[in-house]
Design a protein around this nucleic acid. Structure first.
Lengths: 228, 228, 228, 228
DNA sequence: AATGAATGAGTGTTCATTCAT
DNA sequence: CATGAATGAACACTCATTCAT
C-alpha cells in the first residue's frame, strides 16, 4: 500500500506532473471536499487521465496529503524566513506571528481545507502531516520561550501562548469574513498580530499563580484528532 | 428530495425517535466522520433499522444537520441563560464568553465535528445552520456593542471583537491538547476568557485610527463556506 | 473482510438465494474461468443485481468457495453413503472407488473447475477447502488401511494407493474424452474402478521391499498448492 | 491481434530474448498464477521493460503459450529419446512411461501450471497447444498399440491405456505430496511406472468383452477444454 | 532496437435510498 | 408504524497494450 512506489523514472517529469496534479487536486478538494471529489475529476482538472495520474500519486489519500503537506511547508518556511531576518527576541515573536498570519491570509482556502480534511487522511499520512505540524509548533514555541527567558515578554505560560499564536490567525480562513467589503486585509492582519502580542505580554495573567508544570511543558504540542 | 416530508403523524413519537437518532448519529459521526459513517451503522447505534430511521430523517445529510443544529442551539441557549443572569454590561460580556467557552469545553467532540463537517451539508441545510449560527453571532455582537456603547469596554472594533470571542474558545476542541496532563480544564477556560476580555478592552488598539465603516458593520457576520 | 457477515435475516431466503447464486456462479465460472468472470455476469445469470448478490455472498472469492465446497461435500457424502451400505472390507474399498468415480463422471465440469481454480481462492478459503479435501482423503485412507489390515488387499503402501484411488478418476474430467462417441460412461467407470482395484491388490509390488515409514504415514495426505 | 507479427528481424536475438522472457514468465506464473501476474512483473523478472517485452511476444496470452509449449516440447522430446534407445516393444512402453514420469517429476511446478492455466489461453493458442499435446498422445498411443499388436501387452483397450499412461504421472504434480518426507522421488517414479505397466498388461480386463469400436479408436485423443 | 509514459476500459465492492409486506 | 430486502449508480484503482522518441 504505502510502499507502492512511483514508477516514473524521469524525476523532472515527476516534479512537473505532481505540481500539476497537486494544483488540480487543491482546486477540486476545495470545491467539493475530499470525499465527494472523485479521482476522475482531479485527473480531468489536471489535464490527464486517471491512469496517468496514478503514475504520479499513490492514492487519493496521497493526493490530499500532497496538497496539505505543501501548505504546511509553506508556512513553516515563511516563519523560518521571518526569524532569520530578526535578532531581537521580541521582534522575532512579532515577525513570526505576522509571517504566519500573512500565509493564512493568502491561502485561506487551503487553510480551511486543512482544518476540514486532515481527519480524512489515513492514519499513516495523518501522522506524517501532524508530525510536521508539531515541528512547526515547537519552532514557534522556542521563539516564544526565548523571549520569555530574556524577560521581554511576560506571559507565564509559553505553551498556551504558542497555541493561541498558531491558532487565532486561522480565524481568517475559518470565518472567512468578507475582508474586501469589511476592511483591508492588511488591517486585519495587524489586528490579529496585535491581539496576539498583547496576549503574550499580559501582566494580568502574570500576577496569577502559574499552573503546575507549565514551564516544563511549555512547548508541548497538541495531540489527537484536531487539525494543525 | 428536500421537500420530502416526515410522514409519521404522532408528534411525540417523532420527538422521541429523533432524539434517539440524533444521539446515535452524533456518536457515529464523531467516531468516523460524516462520509465514512454509514446509515446502517447509525441505525444500529440507534437500535432501529434503516427503514425506520428514514421515517424520521429525510436523508443522511439531514441526520448531520440534526446533530449540528442541536449543538448550536445548546450554546445559543447557554449564552441566553448567561446574559439573563447579569445586568451589568461588562459582566454580561464576560458571562457570555465564559458560558460559550464552557459549552465548547464540555462538547469538544461535537464542536470538532461542526468545524469539520458543516461543509458536508447540502446547500440548503448548510444555509439553514449558518443562519442559526449568525443569529448567535448577532446576539453576542449586541452584547459587545452595548458594553462599548456604555464605555465599559474600549475596543474600537466590535465586529472583530465578536469574531474573536466566538472563535478562540474553539481552540479547545480544534487543538484538543491533552488537558488532563497539562492542567485543569477550569484553568484553561479562565485563561481563554481572560485572554478574550483583555482583547476586548484593549487600549492600544483604541489609540489607532479605527478602520472605515467599522461601526456600521460591527455585527456583520461571516458568510460563505466557513465553519460555525 | 472474512468477518463480514451476511446481513439477511430470513434464513430460508438465504438458503434459496445462495442456491441460485451458486448455480449461476458455477455456470459462469465453468464458461469463462474464475478471473475472467465478472460478478456482474454472475448476478445476471442468477437473475439479480450485483447489490443483491452481495447480500448473500461475501466476495467473489466466496462465490468460488461456495461452488467448490458444495462439490467436495457431494463426493464426501457419496463415499460415506457407499461405505454405509457395505460391511465387507474389500467390497467397501471397491464401493468407495465406484462412488467417487461416479460423482466425478456426473460432475466432470465442476471437477475440472476444482482442479483449475482452487489456487485462485484466497489463502483462508483455500485452506478451508483443502482441509475438507484432506478429511476426505483420510476417510478413504482408513477404508484402504482396514482392508490391508485384514489382509484382503495386498498393497504394501496404503498411502500411495489412496492417492491413486482419489486421483485417477479425475482423468474423466481432466481428459474429458468424448465418452458418448467412444463408449458408455458406465464402462469407463468400470475400467477405472478395475484399474484401481488391481493396483491396490498388487502382488508384484508386495514382493518389493516396502519403503521406510510407509505404514506410519499411510494416510498422510497431500499438501501444498495442488488441487483436491 | 492474433495476426500481429514480431517485428524484430535479427532471428538469433529473437531466440535469446524469448528464452529470457519464457524463463521469467515461467517463474512469475508459477508464483502467482496467470491472471494475477502482471506483464510488468514478468518484464522486471526478465530484466527488460514492458515495451521491449512486447517486441518479442504478441500478448500476455502468448507469454503463457510460450511457457507451456516449451514444456510440452520437452516431454515430447524426452519420450522420443526414450524410444530411440529401445527396440523391444514392451520395453519401449516402459521406457516411455518412465521418461514421461521423470519429466513430470522434474518439472512439477510447470505441469501444475499446465493443468491450471491452459484454459486461460485464448481459443487460438489453446488449440495450437492442444494440437501439440494430441500429437504426443498419438506418439504414445502408437507405441502402446505396437506392443499390443505384438502380443507382449494384453490390454484390450489401447486408448484407455494411453490415457492412463499419460495422466497418472501428473499425480506427482497435482498432488505434490511432500516426497522428501515421504520417500525418495525415485521410488515414487518406480511405483507409478509399475502401476501403469500392470494396468497395461491386465489379464482380468482381457477376459472381459472389449467394448465396441475400441480398436478403431484406440489412439483417439481428448478434445475440448480439458487440460494437457 | 529499446524505452517508458500514456491510456482507458474494466473490476470488485459499497451504500444511500426505496417500497412491498 | 416497522421492517429489511432490493436496487443501481458510483468509485478507487489496475493493467495490458501502444507508440513517440
Amino acid at each position: 500500500m504505502s510502499d507502492k512506489a512511483i514508477r516514473i523514472k524521469d524525476q523532472s517529469l515527476v516534479q512537473a506532473r505532481q505540481a500539476q496534479i497537486v494544483e488540480a487536486a487543491r482546486r477540486v478538494f476545495r470545491e467539493k471536499g475530499f470525499h465527494p471529489a472523485t479521482v476522475r475529476e482531479i485527473g480531468d482538472a489536471a489535464g490527464m487521465t486517471q491512469g496517468t495520474l496514478y503514475n504520479y500519486a499513490r492514492s487519493k489519500d496521497d493526493l490530499l496529503f500532497l496538497v496539505l503537506d505543501e501548505l504546511v511547508r509553506e508556512y513553516q518556511e515563511a516563519v523560518e524566513a521571518a526569524i532569520a531576518r530578526e535578532t531581537d527576541p521580541k521582534k522575532r515573536v512579532r515577525a513570526t506571528a505576522r509571517a504566519f498570519t500573512e500565509v493564512v491570509a493568502q491561502r485561506q482556502d487551503d487553510i480551511l481545507l486543512l482544518y476540514q480534511e486532515v481527519h480524512s487522511l489515513e492514519r499513516g499520512l495523518r501522522r506524517k502531516l501532524l508530525a510536521r505540524t508539531h515541528e512547526f509548533f515547537e519552532d514557534v514555541g522556542r521563539i516564544v520561550e526565548q523571549a520569555v527567558a530574556e524577560g521581554v515578554i511576560l506571559t507565564p505560560n509559553a505553551y498556551f501562548a504558542t497555541q493561541v499564536l498558531t491558532f487565532l490567525p486561522a480565524m481568517l480562513a475559518l470565518r472567512r469574513w468578507d475582508i474586501r467589503n469589511y476592511c483591508q486585509t492588511k488591517d486585519v492582519i495587524e489586528w490579529i498580530v496585535d491581539f496576539v502580542m498583547r496576549g503574550l505580554d499580559d501582566r494580568t495573567v502574570a500576577r496569577r499563580a502559574s499552573p503546575r508544570r507549565v514551564r516544563s511543558r511549555a512547548t508541548k504540542v497538541a495531540r489527537g484528532r484536531g487539525a494543525s
